[in-house]
Structures are given as C-alpha cells and as structure tokens.
Design a protein around this nucleic acid. Sequence first.
DNA 1: CGCCCTGTTGGGGA
DNA 2: ATCCCCAACAGGGC
Length: 280
Amino acid sequence: MPELPEVETVRRGLVPLLEGRVLERVEVLDERLVRPIAPRDAEQLLTGRRVLRLDRRGKYLLLVLDDDLVAVHHLRMTGSFAGPAAEEPRHVRLRYFVEGLAGPVRYNDPRRFGTLDIGSSAEITAYLDSRLGPEPLGPDWNGDALYERLRRRSTSLKAVLLDQRVVAGLGNIYVDEACFLAGVRPDLSADRVSRVGAERLVAAVRARLQEAIDVGGSTLRDYRGVEGEVGGMQERFVAYGRAGRPCLTCGNTMRGARIAGRGTTWCATCQPTNRARKLG
DNA sequence: CGCCCTGTTGGGGA
DNA sequence: ATCCCCAACAGGGC
C-alpha cells in the first residue's frame, strides 16, 4: 500500500528496530526478490553489516549500511514489514535477524511485486536519480516547476502526476486526493492546467501528504504498520474510493472512470476546470 | 464452487 | 511521447 506517506510511516517504524544495529543474519526466501543478485549472494552481502540509518526517496526505502553499501526496498502494491512483536505474516519473503531484538524483522509481500536492490551508494544514487524527480515535500518542488512540466505534456494531468520523474512519491490515491483538493479535473489535458492550477496542485499535494504522514499513513484492507498499528488516513479520503458516493463538499455523486490506466474518482461540480473552485 | 473483475507499482515493448 | 500489458495473489460480486 505504499505511496510516499505509507513508506515514510514504515521507515519511521523501522528506525528503532534497525538503526545503529548489526544484521546478524539475513534470510532471502523469495528467489526473485533481490535483483539481479542471487539470494545466497545477497544474504552474504548483507550479513554482518551495521544499519547506519534509514532513508526514503520517493516510494523507495533505503537501508544505508556500513562499508558503503545500500539496500533499497520498493514495496510496490502489497509489500510490508512486520517487527518482532507483530504477528507472523502469511507471505514472508525475507527476514532480517537483528542484533538485540527478540525476533526477526520480516518483509512480507503477497503479490511479490516488491523489489530489493543492493549496491554502493554511488550506484544507488545513480539508479534513483535516473527515475525520480524532486521530493514533493522538499524545497525544490513548487508551482513553477510543476507548471513547466505540465505545459509540455499532452497526456492527462493524472498521468503526469503519477510520473515519478515529475515528482517522486505520488500514487493513485494521493493524486486523486490532491486533484480534488485543488479543484482540478484529473482527466484534464496537462498542457491546459493554468499556472494558478499548478500552484494549487502543489499546495494540495503537500497538504495531503503531510496530513497522511501525521496520522500514520493509510492502511488499506488488512495491511498494518511495522508494529501492527492501523494508520488513520483511510477514513479521511475525500476522493479515493468514493466513486458513486456523494461528494463530501457538494453532495453530488462522484464520477468514476479509468484515467491513465487507473481507477479514478472526481467530482464534476467541485473539479470543473483548472479555475478556482467554489468553496461550499 | 467457479468465473470475472479490480488493485496501493513500475518496467518493457509496441 | 504515450499507451497497453504484464508480474502474482487476494477479495468481492454474481
């Protein structure tokens, strides 16, 4: 379930478990998890290394290890971590046996879309920089930056916001949420979003991501945090998953359609154009 | 019970 | 540049 706020929630949950500690043993249970390295080689590479710190870049989770080594997890659709105190998940793909902990930290992933890349800090930096644009909550991203990107694209606004090279960390949920908050239709051609619209979108993305981080992310279905906790964001969605239900602002029925290949929800009344939205 | 559809992501091919 | 399909599994509707 990991978009940026969920990955950030996982990162924070892992800090007390991993940061500063030595990986005494690592078990890779899924042959295809670590790419393009053989599972046994990955285990050997990681064993005995100390976790200096946990970082996040977009939706990627970084274990910065000693000896200039970085392990990068991407949770894709269904990856999650379970701490020693959490119940044993049904689809454990990797176990970190960590110095001083009662049990292993387990990586779980039913669909097996998640990935783990291991490399030097220079290799990982190059890998991430080639795929990711600025951090949405960082200083490098603003209305002008987004506007300049949008005006050169003929596809939908939604497709552009989902492009990780434009801004790193947005997924299907928060794009719909931000478009609703900004009052801009997600199916609008990107090059028709105004400068003001771009400004509003940046503010909406920031507000929505920060709110989700503050309440511990959204936990869809039976996903839980590292210690089994439930995030509070799922009950705060104003657009995502609300197709066919009344708009929380105006009461009209929310539209649902397939945009950029993804299920998309918006309110035709509150998101009519890229112009300022009337407040209710 | 089976079949069909959907899905929080990203990569590759057309 | 853009779009479609795929990876592999769970859950819901019929």
